[in-house]
Amino acid sequence: MNYIIPLTILGIISYGVLKKINIYDTFLDGSKEGLHTIFNILPSILAMVVGVNIFLKSGVLYFFLSFLEPVLKSYDLSLEILAMGFLRPISGSASLAIMNSIYKIYGVDSFMGFLASVMEGATDTTIYVLALYFGSIKIVKTRYALKVGLFADLCGLIAAFIVSTIFF
């Protein structure tokens, strides 16, 4: 695994030399464009992090989820698992933090620990990625992107639950 990045860089640079391009200047040009990209993604990251933190730190999520507790009991699931499912598309660090506490409360080799691990690997932070990528090119009308992204997440989480009951 440690070889991939260095060898890729060496390969790309060598190919550039072979094709007789000025590799150093070309690198600088590309990197300069990167500065522009960073400038463009800053506001969307700021907006998302502030929004997500207000939501998380207020504890309102557990207030919402407390209504669903009776349903969870009938499926033998914990409140933490549901919270993790909710947070997975919103914040990578938050869902990782909940996964940690699930390991602590139920044990890493319990069913809850297993399910949380599979859920973490099943999807990505859809809302964050959407805000970042669309923000970088100033797209305002996102059309059906979020709908499809969240649908994929939901399918991934349900699949994680089913697969976990089979494999555990």
Binding site: I12, F27, L35, I38
Partner: peptide
Amino acid sequence: IPVILLWMGIMNIAEVSGL
């Protein structure tokens, strides 16, 4: 920032060279 600046530079070489 470091990852973006580094890889956008390297990938520009890959793009210009046709790789």
